[in-house]
Write a protein that binds this DNA or RNA. Sequence first.
DNA 1: CGCATTCACTTAACATGTTAAGTATCTCCC
DNA 2: GGGAGATACTTAACATGTTAAGTGAATGCG
Lengths: 152, 152
Amino acid sequence: MRDFSRSLPMSLLRAREAVMRQFRPSLREHGLTEQQWRILRALAAIEAVEVTELARTAFLLGPSLSRILRDLEARNLIERKTAKADQRRSMVSISKEGVKLMASVAPNSEAIYAEITRRFGARKLAELQDMLGALEQSLAELGSAEEASAEE
Amino acid sequence: MRDFSRSLPMSLLRAREAVMRQFRPSLREHGLTEQQWRILRALAAIEAVEVTELARTAFLLGPSLSRILRDLEARNLIERKTAKADQRRSMVSISKEGVKLMASVAPNSEAIYAEITRRFGARKLAELQDMLGALEQSLAELGSAEEASAEE
DNA sequence: CGCATTCACTTAACATGTTAAGTATCTCCC
DNA sequence: GGGAGATACTTAACATGTTAAGTGAATGCG
């Protein structure tokens, strides 16, 4: 069997960890996890979104998002109100405090990103992102590959 | 601020998820998580390893590994014995049952990997892996970037 | 030797990942 | 208009990620 440490999943995992290791300390100082930061960033770009749409944008599963939103709301970093037209949906938006927190984290975050870009090379970075996108595309139609064996 | 869905961490996350989504159902049928599978694969390649070394190979943090080893041992998929020379260290190895389980999972797993390779292209895959390795290298010296602000 | 320090893990505590089940609301169609 | 089915979440339960603290065994050095 192929040396698994050279497998694609491991390469992706290690690469991502190498990148995230740069950001985590800074986020941590502001009391934010990587996922909470993703949510705030996603919210900063728009007026308000439904939870399901936010899950897609921040690439989080529903249950994770539910928990995190509950916590972020308790910390007054976001706001929620149920949609008028459909009581099932709730519209989420970033609060004034949330915006303030983002403003205090963003410069450092940008600096780190810039340093990563500098080290790896802007061109190579763009190329890498293209390939990652292409990989995603290649596997998109495959879905979740349930053809393994017979299940219910 | 840059559209975060196009950031490097998100690209890496989505790409990895697209890949892992292919494998998870198959592993799940055999009662294995992705991490448990990584450990078995790492163990299959050698006689026995220390826990710390295994953590490095399987790219897991100590605490996660501790828990998983406890569970895998309870399921008789691995074996442990403390090293003679140093009572602190314990040597971990895969059991006969573990080998058998691997044999039942591996074919499917290989087939999935082959399909991914086919779809994305073997050459592009190799290229991507090279870039991921290079990215890791670029950030290796950076360590964990504690220069954000003053902490102990 | 003796004991402070280091080392190899393990536990603890809290946050998220993942799947399944639950709840309230809405839609559609008879 | 009313009930079956779909939708938009939320809760539950268990596994892992992540940092800090704990434990027992080795090491170094005065």
